[in-house]
Amino acid sequence: MKISVVDVEQVARLARLELTFEEKELFATQMDAILDYVEKLKELNTEGIIPTSHAVPMENAFREDLVMPSIGLAKALANAPGRSDNFFSVPKVIE
C-alpha cells in the first residue's frame, strides 16, 4: 500500500476537502491502484528530456496596456453567496 488513510487525510487537508470515513477508505484503495498503475512511467528513461507544460510553442502574449470596460460591480457581485455593500462577505478572519 502506497497510500494509507492517514495520507488521504493529509492530502484532503491540502485540497480543502472534508471526507467521510467511507470516502477515506475508498480513496485510499482507489488512489493506491491508480498510483500503482502510473508507476509504469518509471520504466522510461527521461533523463535530459525537457518537460512539456503546453503543447503549442508560444511566446508570452502581451497586449497594449489600455483601459477597457470591466463587467462592473453589479454583475461581479450578482452570484455572491454573501455580500455587504460592494464587498463579498465571509466569516470573520481575524479575531
Binding site: V38, K42, T52
Partner: peptide, 11 residues
C-alpha cells in the same frame, strides 16, 4: 514532472 517529460516523448 515525470509525467510532463513523458508527455514530451508522446509528442
Amino acid at each position: 514532472v515525470k509525467a510532463q517529460k513523458v508527455r514530451t516523448l508522446i509528442m
